[in-house]
Design a binder for these strands. Structure first.
Lengths: 236, 236
DNA sequence: ACCTGAACACCGTTCAAGT
DNA sequence: ACCTGAACACCGTTCAAGT
C-alpha cells in the first residue's frame, strides 16, 4: 500500500519525516552508504541541509529510520494467507529479509551494527517476532524459544549480509560483469592459494563457483531447522 | 609471538606498514571506527598525514589490513595440540572469533561488509579454512562441504556480530552500566511492546534478560552441528 | 512552527617541496 | 626512497535570521 507521494515536478508540499526517509532510502539504494549526504538529501528535497534537522535528530537516526522502513516493508506479508507449516513460514520470512538485503545492500551493515546498537528500537523486535512466532509450533520446549530464535536470526542475518556483499562486489567489478564472472574470479583466487595452508578452501573452490545463493541460503536454514528438530534446545 | 615493537619514548624508528596497522588497531579499539583518522594516526606515529599514504593506499586498505591482522591472530591456535574431536575444534575456532569480535567490536561491521567486498582477500579464506577443515571428519559427503561450511561461518559471523553490538551498547549506555543493567533495560522495552503484535517477543523477554552470551553462542553452534549430523547436506 | 543558508570544525586525499 | 605539511573538496552539524 501507498505508492504515491511521488515528488512532483518542482517544489515539495512541505517536508515530512516520511518523505525524508523515503528519499534517504533512494539515495542509499543508488549510491550506497556513502551516497547518503545531508547536502545530497537536501538537494533532492529542494531545501537546505539545515531543514532536515528539524525532522531528524542526526544521521544515525536517519539511518535507523531508513532501516526500519525497509525491514518493515520486507516483513509485511499478507497475514491471513494459507498458513503453511512453521518451517515454510520461517523460510518465507527469511527469504523476505534475504531479498530485502539483496535489493538494499547497505542494509547488511546496518543490521549487523546499528540494529543491535539499539535493540530497544523497532527493528530487532520486528525480526525476532516474525521468526520466533513459528518456533513454538516446531516442538521446541518453552525454555528453548529464545535460544532457537536467536540462532535462526543470527544465521539469517549473517548469511544474507554475506550474500549482499557478494552481489555488491560483482556490481562494483564493472558494469557488465555478472555474478558468474565474479564467482569465477574468486574461485580462481582460491585455487591459487598455498596447498599446504589452504587444502580445504582449494578443494571447495569448484563448489563456490557453481553454487546458487538462494539455494545455499535455504539449505542453511534447513540445516538449522534440522538441528532444532533433532535436538530441541532447552534453557538448562 | 612478537609482542615487542613497542613504540618507544619519542621519535619512531622509521614508519612501517606493520607499525601503521598496529597503531590503527589501537585507535579502533580505543574509539571505534570513528576513532581511526589519518590525522589521529599521524599524531600517534609522530608524523604527518601524508606520510601514511606512502605505505597504505587509502583508508579502506588500512581497515582491511587491520581486520586481517586481528583475524589472523585470533585463528592462530597452537597447531600440534591435543587434536580433539571435529566438533570441539570447530567450537575452538568459533570462540576464537567470538572473543576477537568482543575485544574489537569494530570487527563485526568489517567482517560483514568489507570481508566479502573482497573475498579474494586473505580474511575470508582464513576463516573458511579454519572452520571447513573439520567438516569432512563430521561425516558430510564431499559435495556438501561448501554448503555446510558456509552455514557455519554465516552463523558464527552473524551471532558474534550481534553480541559485539550488545556489548558495545552496554558500554555506550554509561561508564558504570554493565551487561546486566543493559539486558534488563532491553527486556523491559520488550515487555512493553504491543501484546497483539509482539506476543512471542514479550514471552521471551525473561529469557533475554537471563541469557549468557557465550553459552547462547555455543548452543547455536551445536544446533547447526546437530543439523549437520541429522541431515548431512549434499550438493544436489 | 518550519525553513534558509552561511559558518564551523573536521575529514580523506593530493602533491609540491624537502631530506 | 621516504617524509612533511599546506591545500582542496567534502562532510555533519549548528544557528541566527527569516517566514
Amino acid at each position: 500500500m501507498a505508492t504515491r507521494t511521488r515528488r512532483s515536478q518542482r517544489r515539495t508540499e512541505a517536508l515530512s519525516r516520511a518523505g525524508i526517509v523515503e528519499a534517504a532510502v533512494e539515495l542509499l539504494d543508488g549510491a550506497g552508504e556513502g551516497g547518503l549526504t545531508f547536502r545530497a538529501l537536501a538537494e533532492r528535497l529542494a531545501t537546505g541541509p539545515g531543514a532536515i534537522y528539524w525532522h531528524v535528530a542526526n544521521k544515525g537516526e536517519l539511518l535507523d529510520a531508513a532501516t526500519d522502513a525497509v525491514v518493515a516493508a520486507a516483513l509485511a506479508v499478507e497475514p491471513a494467507e494459507s498458513p503453511g507449516s512453521p518451517r515454510d513460514e520461517i523460510r518465507v520470512v527469511a527469504l523476505g529479509l534475504f531479498d530485502a538485503i539483496e535489493e538494499h545492500p547497505w542494509l547488511a551493515a546496518q543490521l549487523s551494527t546499528h540494529l543491535s546498537r539499539s535493540p530497544w528500537g523497532s527493528v530487532t523486535p520486528r525480526i525476532f517476532e516474525s521468526v520466533g512466532r513459528q518456533v513454538p509450533a516446531l516442538g521446541v520446549p518453552q525454555d528453548g524459544w529464545f535460544t532457537t530464535t536467536s540462532a535462526l536470526v543470527h544465521y539469517i542475518l549473517g548469511a544474507a549480509g554475506q550474500n549482499a556483499a557478494n552481489s555488491a562486489s560483482a556490481g562494483a567489478l564493472g558494469a557488465g560483469v555478472g555474478r558468474t564472472e565474479f564467482l569465477d574470479s574468486v574461485a580462481k583466487a582460491w585455487e591459487a592459494l598455498d596447498p599446504d595452508e589452504y587444502p580445504f578452501t582449494r578443494a571447495v573452490a569448484d563448489q563456490l563457483r557453481d553454487h546458487d545463493d538462494r539455494e545455499q541460503f535455504l539449505a542453511g536454514i534447513d540445516l538449522v531447522l534440522a538441528g532444532v528438530t533433532a535436538h530441541p534446545p532447552s534453557g538448562d
